[in-house]
Computed example of a mutant assay.
Amino acid sequence: MAIDLRKIEQTAPALVDLYKRAGVSLGKHGLRGQRAAVYLVVDHSGSMRPYYRDGSVQALADRVLGLAAQLDDDGRVPVVFFSTDVDAVSDIDLADHHGRIDRITATLGHMGRTNYHTAMDAVIDHYLDSGADAPALVVFQTDGGPGDRALTEKYVCKAARLPLFWQFVGFGDPHSSQFDFLRRLDELPVPQRRPVDNAGFFHAGKDPRRVPDDVLYDRLVGEFPAWLAAARARGILPAPRPAA
């Protein structure tokens, strides 16, 4: 159930427009009324410094929080920061979102290399420990391919049996070969490698803040309905309850 607009106006007025635009995108994709837990995973490797400095990561966090307020009612998004390993697991919420990314990263140490699988493991553990009965949409941001490619593929294929959809978002040069791995990951065959297509990828460019909100939301949720249908057909998610 979405958070009431009046609560957004009272607790996070800067997110009102994002909340409304997210609602429009959900409606376009037949997702109005859909419940989902929303996670944000952000790359904290050394090459990400410019995106923290210019506010791109905070801007993405705000947009994801606006989307989460439409899909869940707790006003909070768990955030995993990763580089060589998991650097932090924290959260952003409506009442304290402004500058939250800087406050978290100020307490972190060395920005290491890029390994995806540890962050995926942290999300899976958090989701299973939460006891959630809704599916999860995981927004996974990175500015390059991982050093742990074989492990990442293994995790994506194993996680396909769980009610988690991984939406990868690239920051940086869209023509860089760094993102070839994510494009291949997006196309891992079904059912040979995984029971359902549980991952998507899109590139937000060198200045992700310039991607219009409605375009970003369309890309974040565009593949989610097909995954929901496939996951229900394979019994990964229960069939929707008929309307009373």
Rank of each mutant, 00 (worst) to 15 (best):
G66D: 05
G66C: 09
L67Y: 09
L67P: 11
A69D: 12
Q70P: 02
D72C: 06
D73T: 12
D73N: 14
D74S: 14
D74P: 14
G75H: 09
R76I: 04
V77F: 01
V77S: 00
P78V: 14
P78C: 13
P78M: 11
V80I: 08
V80W: 06
V80R: 13
V89L: 13
D91Y: 14
D91C: 07
D91I: 02
I92F: 11
D93C: 12
L94I: 12
L94V: 04
L94G: 05
D96Y: 05
D96C: 05
H97Q: 07
R100A: 03
R100W: 01
R100F: 01
I101H: 10
R103G: 09
I104W: 11
I104V: 15
I104E: 10
I104A: 03
I104R: 09
A106Y: 02
T107K: 15
T107N: 08
L108D: 07
G109T: 05
H110W: 12
M111K: 15
M111W: 13
G112S: 06
R113Q: 04
R113S: 04
N115K: 07
N115P: 01
Y116S: 11
H117Q: 08
A119V: 03
A119M: 08
M120W: 02
M120G: 04
M120N: 06
M120K: 10
D121F: 02
D121N: 12
A122H: 05
A122S: 12
V123Y: 02
I124K: 13
I124Q: 10
I124W: 08
I124S: 06
I124C: 08
D125C: 05
D125R: 14
D125P: 06
D125M: 03
H126R: 11
H126F: 10
L128W: 08
L128R: 15
L128K: 15
D129L: 12
D129W: 03
D129T: 09
S130R: 05
S130Y: 04
S130Q: 06
G131H: 08
G131L: 08
G131Y: 09
G131K: 13
D133R: 14
D133H: 09
D133L: 13
D133G: 09
A134L: 05
A134K: 07
P135S: 01
L137M: 11
V138T: 02
Q141G: 14
D143V: 02
G144Q: 09
G144D: 12
G144H: 06
G145E: 08
G145N: 08
P146H: 01
D148E: 09
R149C: 05
R149D: 03
A150N: 14
A150E: 12
L151T: 00
L151W: 00
T152A: 15
E153H: 13
E153S: 10
E153F: 14
K154M: 04
K154S: 05
K154N: 06
K154P: 00
Y155M: 08
V156N: 00
V156D: 00
C157M: 12
K158R: 13
K158A: 07
A159C: 13
A160L: 01
R161I: 01
R161T: 10
R161P: 04
P163G: 11
L164E: 02
L164M: 12
F165E: 02
W166D: 04
Q167G: 07
Q167M: 14
Q167H: 05
Q167A: 04
Q167R: 15
Q167W: 04
F168Y: 14
F168E: 07
V169A: 00
V169D: 00
